[in-house]
Computed example of a mutant assay.
Amino acid sequence: MTTDVSPTAAGLAADTRRALYQTMVLCRTYEEAILREYHADKGPGFDIGKGLVPGEMHLSAGQEPVAAGVCAHLTTDDAVTATHRPHHFAIAHGMDLDAMTAEIFGRVDGLGRGRGGHMHLFDPATHFSCSGIIAEGYPPALGAAFAFKRRGTDRIAVAVTGEGAANQGAFHESLNLAALWRLPVLFVVEDNDWAISVPRAGSTAIPSNADRAAAYGMPGERVEDNDVDAVYAAAGRAVERARSGGGPSLLEVHTVRLWGHFEGDAQGYRPELAEVPSHDPLPRYEAALREAGVLDDGVVESIKADASRRVEAAVAFATSSPEPDPATVRDHVFA
């Protein structure tokens, strides 16, 4: 059965909503810092191969409600497999900012000793991984969930992908196997309307991927309006189902990509581009919490100051970490 979840804050305690806001602020502050550092030395013009962070960069500004609402129900014993746009989920799941940032900068103190970069963040401490291959985070999540179930634990796996990836074979094969084996998995689809430059209507025959859950005998819910309170509530139901042995669920969230698919993307394919800033979930949520008496000027300033301090410390750590010695190019890789 598919459920459409309308925005609601009913039943959420003030401290829960404040914590969700805090996570969203930290994620956004981090992405703004990476945006700044990424573009700082790519001129004149834009040279994707230049600078402290060469190569592609996919930032998650606007999609913070998904990560905050889902990861609020997890512990670092649970596994999360994310996409090529992974920073918000890595942060919400508790990844160490220093090691994460050093990896993005390609430094030896990074998670993968600078070998992986921002699309390949692997962290055993938080059981987090991500991949640049579309939908390929789903099968590894099944492996983790299978192990958790065989060991008799209540740990779960969360597999995240975008709406475009819901048309990949790995998506459907994973849902089928998870349902067949009743695995403790939450499948999350971030619907930001654009699979790179292809709109949902140009790639997908149905308006909600949550409807696809019924074909595999699992619950499906779709959260509209990028509402973090609604995400938190829907994810809570799915996580409880998984932990209690009820099997997998599918959660799709209609979110928004505030920036380009990658940095340097001019986004000429987006007819609604001028309207995008008005859909920013962070100021909207802050305003709602102020109106509800959950936030005031002092709390907001404290949360933003703490996020800035943590993020700038991570950037400083990364930039002070050495670059890998070219002589070690064959180390730490499979031959």
Rank of each mutant, 00 (worst) to 15 (best):
E103T: 06
G69Q: 01
D41C: 04
F262K: 02
W259K: 04
A61T: 01
D47Y: 09
R212I: 10
C71F: 11
G45H: 11
R155C: 05
D78E: 01
I196F: 07
W194F: 08
D109E: 14
L142T: 03
H120Y: 12
F122R: 07
L12Y: 05
L20P: 12
V311I: 14
G152K: 07
A165L: 09
S320E: 12
I156F: 06
D211M: 03
L35M: 13
I303N: 13
L142P: 04
E272N: 15
S6L: 14
S208H: 15
A141C: 04
H254W: 12
A102F: 02
G162P: 11
G246L: 11
D227F: 01
I91T: 09
G49A: 10
D211R: 03
D211I: 01
G152A: 05
I34M: 02
H73W: 12
G132T: 13
A19P: 06
A335E: 15
V294T: 15
K149S: 00
G110T: 06
V188G: 00
A170W: 09
F148Y: 14
D47I: 12
M100A: 03
G217E: 05
D15V: 10
V231F: 06
F262W: 08
A316M: 07
L183Y: 10
E275F: 05
F317R: 09
K149H: 00
C71W: 07
I48A: 12
K149W: 05
M100D: 07
L175I: 10
H39F: 05
A79I: 01
R28S: 00
A90V: 05
T319Y: 01
G217K: 07
G293S: 00
V276S: 02
V228Q: 11
A166Y: 04
G45W: 11
T153Y: 03
G202R: 13
D96R: 11
G137W: 05
A19L: 13
H332F: 15
E221M: 15
E224I: 13
E263A: 08
V294M: 13
P326K: 10
H279W: 11
V5P: 06
I303R: 13
S131W: 11
M1R: 02
W194T: 03
